[in-house]
Computed example of a mutant assay.
Amino acid sequence: MNRQTLKYPRSFIHLLMLLMVALIASSFPVGALITSGLPPEVMMFLRFLLAALLFAPYVFLKNGWQLPRARNLAGYAALSIPLVVFFWCMFEALRYTSALNTGAIYTIVPAITALYVFFINREKTSKRRASGLLLGTLGALWIVFRGDINNLLQLDINHGDLLFLLGCLFMGAYNPMIKKLYSGEAMELMTFWVISFGTLWLLLLSLPTLDQIEWQAVDSQVYLGILYLAIFTTLISFFLLQLGTLVLGATQVAAYSFLTPVFVVILNLFIDSAVFQWQLLPGIAFVLIAMILVQREGYSLQNA
């Protein structure tokens, strides 16, 4: 691990993780507002391109211009693939499902991450952590089905939910891959090159449709939304995610996604003037308890 990641107190990293999950949660309602403005791959291409261009001056002024080793570049290219698949699935899914549903489904990422951690990082999951992951998954199901057992028995899910679930399967691999591929470079370098490779893949996906878009007819709110996503939920969030993974571990950081539906519910109250649904409270309670269990497990291991 690079020494620069060791100088941050763990309590400060936990605060940064709260900021990270709040930013990630904001991407769901913002994405829902603009998802019909452009094709998902084009919207994601612009988002990643803006993030890379805005970040480039800082990265190169601090570290100088030098191309990473071929092995590192291959690692960055591999790391970018789960992100591209996840975000494409997210924006395509938001055409068919709600921001709350996607935010709730996102809370199963820690359980998926735990499986990848076992196979990629060879780390076992304790009983306490497994209990937390199970509670978090139950909480996510409760929120998706609005606490209605009939909806659960009838599998009242839609195409968007299934598509986003596929994206979460890819996203679960991202955190353990960071620990596997990180070789001690400056964190901003890894963030920049991962975003840059993501931009390249999304450009290739977007090429067939780029010349068919009437750019002047696109609502200005769509461009503002993309700018917000590029800065806050791409550039800043990726940096915080990678930093947190190296300090706290993949599963512990992923557990913060249990809080995503809580933040989505809060944001929807402000953005859409939605009415709070009290039947969601048990699900929210489950995901809060789940996060606490996983975080206490990480704290116990750190102080053992």
Rank of each mutant, 00 (worst) to 15 (best):
A32S: 14
A78W: 02
A186C: 08
Q279L: 10
L166W: 00
S183W: 09
M171I: 11
G167F: 01
R128I: 05
I226V: 15
L248I: 11
L202Q: 04
Y299A: 13
G249F: 01
G184M: 06
A32P: 04
N151Y: 10
F197Y: 05
T5I: 15
Q252C: 07
A255W: 02
V265N: 10
S273M: 14
A51Q: 02
V85E: 05
L229T: 04
A70R: 14
G139H: 01
L18A: 11
P82Q: 11
L235A: 05
L155G: 13
V42M: 08
V21K: 01
L288W: 08
F170Q: 05
Y96T: 04
L49V: 06
Y116N: 10
L19E: 06
Q295D: 15
S80T: 02
L16K: 01
L135N: 04
V84M: 09
P176K: 06
R129N: 09
M171H: 03
S220H: 12
R47D: 03
L267P: 05
F48I: 04
L94Y: 04
L23W: 01
I231T: 13
Q252D: 14
F270P: 03
A111T: 14
W65G: 09
A74C: 10
L241R: 02
E123D: 14
P40F: 07
G132S: 07
S126E: 05
Y106E: 12
F258P: 02
L166V: 12
Q212E: 12
K62R: 15
V42Y: 04
G184D: 09
P208V: 14
P176Y: 05
L227K: 13
G198Y: 00
S237C: 10
L134H: 02
I157V: 15
T113Y: 11
Y228A: 13
P9C: 12
V275R: 11
V253F: 07
A140S: 14
A111V: 13
Q221I: 08
S36N: 11
L169P: 00
L281A: 14
A99I: 13
L280K: 08
I105R: 01
V194E: 00
V218P: 03
Q252S: 15
L6A: 14
S36I: 00
M291W: 07
L15H: 08
V294A: 02
G103R: 08
F276R: 08
L135G: 02
E92V: 03
L200C: 04
L141N: 05
S26W: 06
T113D: 07
E297C: 03
N175G: 01
T191D: 00
K7V: 15
T209G: 09
F170P: 06
I271H: 07
C89N: 01
R146M: 10
I105S: 02
G132W: 02
A254D: 04
I226P: 07
T102E: 13
D148G: 07
V222H: 06
L38P: 00
N121K: 10
I13C: 14
M187Q: 10
L205C: 11
A254Q: 04
Y223P: 04
L269G: 11
L246Y: 01
Q4E: 15
L134I: 14
V275K: 12
L246I: 12
P40S: 11
P40Q: 06
F164I: 03
L280H: 09
L134F: 14
F192R: 00
L61N: 11
R10M: 13
A250N: 03
R47T: 06
D156T: 15
V30S: 09
L224A: 14
V109N: 05
Y96V: 07
R71D: 06
L224R: 11
D219C: 10
